[in-house]
Simulated scan of single mutants.
Amino acid sequence: MSTTELAPGANLAALRKERGWSQAYLARKASVSVSLLSKIEVGDRALTPAVAAALSKPLGLTMAEVLGKAAVARDSGEHLAALRSAVRDYDLPAQHEVHGDRIATALETARRFRDDVQLTQLLAILPKLLRDATTLAHSANTVEAWAGLSDVYSIVYWIAARHRWMDMADLAVTRQRWAVEQRANPLGAAMAARDRAGAYLNGGDFEGGLTIVDRAITAAQSSLSGQDRAFAVGVLNLRGMTLAGRLRDKAEGKREAERHVASAAAAAEWFDRDWNRHMIFGPQNTATHVLATRLDLGKPHEALSAAEDIDTVLDGLPPTRVASTRINMARAQLDVGDRDGALENLTLAWGVAPQMARIHPMGREVFRVVSSLHRRSNPELLRLSKLSGITL
């Protein structure tokens, strides 16, 4: 039942009914109110990541599975199977020669597809790129070759996490860490830890993810210097504030989040504009994460205040960041009762990254709630309904 045909709240209802559970039973097991669960299932309230994490435990699922796995495009099934096979064959390099310059070019193309959220194109090139990078790493056995392989696994993790394929995401971060440990690479180790903490995030284990982040920050501070250290520490703090914002204890979440916000802001002072090296970090991406964290902490007005100059903040950031931020703004506007504003930002998200908007769980969930609450005919609702596959 967990496919992109169902938005998260509707997917939750389907999962509960499959088990033959009443709303009262699930609510009691998850320690949430029956009223909230009912509103989520009928589309009057959005299913947030924190609530999804609480509900996932009695269901025996990850948070990502409650939000709903996304299906690949109809003609991408073979590419997905090939990618799974390449991930399994991590220690089986090919016998033919590969050229480092061609792999570097292919890796740069993969990064561009990731940043532009060209999911179909990315999935098509990843299996060969992963096999070639594996072969080069084993044959060259250099820091650069193993770092390149680690970067490919980071992209594999990214596409798996976007679709909520958590088995592949978990395996990818394990392979990423293994690759970066073959030759000392402190910056690569920080990026691997960031992705590993992301797997904890998607699994709903926010406390465990914070432990990974804090340990990696300590390591980066001792092993790196200058802008490399600021970049690594900054990227890790962005992950830390996201994890903190989703802690169930919001008082603790606020304390942890503010610690990571302050540390990220200090690291961002090293940069005039955001760097895009493996990940994106700088003052702009820090601002988008602060917005999202305020929202996760249940402070939508604060989130919208942080977005007052959002066009400037988003200027120059890649579509993957722009679309997710527009979706977060839509969620915040929905929380404060601005349905038209929420629909406008969803439309902007669809415009900049349609492939992401279609599979983004919160984008789909906010649209479901907006369409449920709207009391008048709206051409934009009809258009997005057709694009998303969510019926009005």
Rank of each mutant, 00 (worst) to 15 (best):
P58T: 03
T218W: 08
L36E: 07
L123R: 08
V369N: 01
L247F: 12
A86G: 11
D116Q: 07
G389H: 10
D340Y: 11
A54K: 15
R358G: 07
A64I: 06
G341V: 01
P300N: 00
I310V: 08
Q221V: 05
T391F: 11
G341I: 01
T312V: 09
D151C: 09
D296M: 07
A230F: 12
L295R: 02
R175I: 12
A82G: 14
P379Y: 10
R215A: 14
G204W: 11
E97P: 05
R114K: 14
D75V: 13
F231M: 14
S139L: 14
L61P: 06
L343Q: 01
L384Q: 11
A73D: 13
L373R: 04
G148Y: 07
H289M: 11
G100K: 08
N11W: 03
E252L: 06
S56P: 06
A46I: 08
P300D: 00
S31P: 08
L210I: 05
H163Q: 13
D167Y: 07
I159F: 12
H360W: 12
L47Q: 01
G9Q: 01
W178Q: 10
L346W: 09
A124Y: 09
E256N: 11
I155S: 04
A216Q: 06
E65G: 00
A106C: 03
T288E: 03
H374I: 15
L126Q: 09
R28I: 04
D274Q: 10
H260Y: 10
G316P: 00
P354S: 02
Y200N: 04
S139D: 14
V233N: 02
H99S: 14
L387P: 01
S35I: 06
L130Q: 12
L384H: 11
L243A: 00
R259D: 04
A52S: 03
K29Q: 13
D311N: 05
A46H: 01
A303F: 00
T211A: 12
V34Y: 09
G198M: 07
A64N: 02
H289V: 13
Q23L: 13
S22R: 03
G253W: 00
L201K: 05
P361I: 03
V51Q: 01
